[in-house]
């Protein structure tokens, strides 16, 4: 093994009790333009905000503990695994890559995400997938109210239940829920779950590492009645 290969194979450990968040993020950002460790482990995040945000590199980052707001925000290409709970806006505006939360996620998980896969093994709070623009989100547990609000494109899979006003003002995103839905938002309706949907659902669950049968899910999407303002729909606004 060459020296460079050995360095890249080693796990770079960063303890946030000894290293500043700024230094961690700067080192991760520096990977975009140069070679460096391909595997990272972050210790003692202790709820810090903006951990591992803005990465643009094919690296694996393991975060041992709970994180605050915006962990892995705007992620590109990286795999970030959080061994704990995540605060609001985990993987917000993610472009690509994988973000995995082993615990629960607070509100606005995957907000405005444009690509990649966000997996929350536990529950996700309100506004999960709000304004999503192409991201795929798989939640092992349940999601809170107003999830997929104004969801544009991408797919949200909920293996548990969904809170009130699911998919309010939804555009073209596809929603799959296995459990109950407390209520659908404006212009969101249940749709037929056809074979092609079961196939894509199966693929998403497989990628997320969650065992569940696609047949148990129901599909929701836009009725497309509010796409252009009509006075007859004024009551829905």
């Amino acid at each position: 093994m060459t020296a460079v290969a050995a360095r890249e194979a080693a796990v770079e450990v960063v303890d946030l009790e000894a290293t500043s968040l700024r230094e961690l993020n700067q080192r991760l950002h520096d990977l975009a333009g140069s070679r460096g460790p391909a595997a990272w482990r972050v210790l003692n995040p202790n709820g810090a905000h903006a951990v591992a945000c803005g990465i643009d590199a094919e690296v694996d980052v393991e975060v041992d503990g709970h994180v605050g707001y915006y962990c892995a925000g705007m992620n590109k290409r990286a795999t970030v695994r959080i061994h704990g709970n995540a605060g609001p806006g985990v993987a917000e505006n993610m472009m690509s890559g994988l973000v995995l939360v082993h615990g629960n996620a607070s509100q606005s998980a995957g907000a405005t995400g444009r690509g990649g896969l966000l997996v929350v093994r536990g529950d996700a709070s309100s506004r999960c997938g709000i304004s999503m623009k192409g991201i795929d989100i798989v939640v092992g547990g349940s999601v809170g109210h107003m999830s997929a609000f104004m969801a544009q494109t991408g797919r949200l899979v909920v293996c548990g239940d969904a809170g009130d006003a699911l998919g309010d003002s939804i555009y073209e995103a596809r929603l799959y829920v296995r459990g109950s839905v407390a209520g659908l938002g404006a212009d969101c309706v249940e749709k037929e779950l056809r074979e092609e949907h079961r196939v894509e659902l199966g693929e998403l669950l497989l990628r997320a590492g969650i065992e569940a049968s696609p047949k148990e899910f129901r599909r929701y999407g836009s009725a497309r009645q509010l796409y252009n303002f009509k006075v007859d729909n004024a009551g829905a606004y």
Binding site: A50, Y69, G73, G89, S131, F149, M150, N228
Partner: peptide
């Protein structure tokens, strides 16, 4: 189709959140 832009940000509410959002933007842009 009509494109509506929300009146509230999707991932923060209030001044305390705004402070954290600004921190994230600073971190992303070093």
């Amino acid at each position: 189709i009509d494109q509506r832009s929300a009146s509230r940000h999707p991932d923060w509410t209030g001044p305390d959140d705004l402070e954290i959002k600004i921190q994230e933007l600073r971190e992303i842009t070093d």
